[in-house]
Amino acid sequence: MMQIAEQVLAASVVLATPILLAAIGGLVNRQGGIVNIALEAKMLTGAFVAVVVSSATGSWGVAVLAAAIVSAAIGYLFSLTITRARANMIIAGLGLNVLVAGFVGFIMNVGFDASGTLRMPHVELLPKLLPGSVAALPLVGEALSDLDPLTVFAWLSVAALPFLLANTRLGLRLRAAGNAPHVARAVGLREKSLQDFGTAFAGFYSGLAGAHLALASIGLFNEGLTAGRGFIALAAFYFARNRPVGTALVCLFFGFLDATQIRLQTVGLPPQLIGTLPYAMVILGLCLTAWNLKRKAQA
């Protein structure tokens, strides 16, 4: 029993990491006033770049950084279509998801002569941070021995984010640009550039998320690798109403659902339905919020 709990905890943490990284990016973006539907596209980009660069350089660090930077650049360009060319952010986001999926497939096909799955030689995976001996610790041992740098970075980000958003100049200005762009402009801020920064930030973190998906254990790229995790991340920060710590806990719960799907199947809970739980939670959350608002307005 204890052993199962250990395994589930370890798997939950690992599976939560990519969702959490993308959600961190998405929630900062949304605090800056842009709902980013294209986290998925940037995760896919990140995963692809990470595998290619890791294979080419043999360095997981360079690979992760490259993934993040490429995704951030895509995020920035995407942001320009919204803030400067006034594209509808939802449609442009869905369009970017289609475009990037096509583009990545195209490059894979043409550049690497692969279709669907890309296997590269000498892909260096993310290292484990702690010595194997920690596995002996009760309950958390397995989770600790699995810890990789991106998981640690994700949780450190969660810990730092509330402080950074509240207490740095950039954090404050970003929130002002999201909450009331005309006010930000009235006090002399460039609200569009702030929003562009937010989208590039989301791209950066989604790139990390993709890198984690590709390099945490499997070491290859697959077109279906992200499997809607960008949208699960969206669900997470929507459900937690943009609060970093709340979002992290929701992500952990989604990771837990992911980790236990197979086990729950044996007790009769179908994995497909469990997979819809994050999405159902968001709709339910939105309904409850709206219901409360309406009740308050009538009171």
Binding site: R175, A176, N179, A180, V183, A186
Partner: peptide
């Protein structure tokens, strides 16, 4: 008023 409603008065 040119205040961001979600920010605190001090932040504004």
């Amino acid at each position: 008023f040119m205040l961001a409603p979600e920010l605190t008065l001090l932040e504004n």
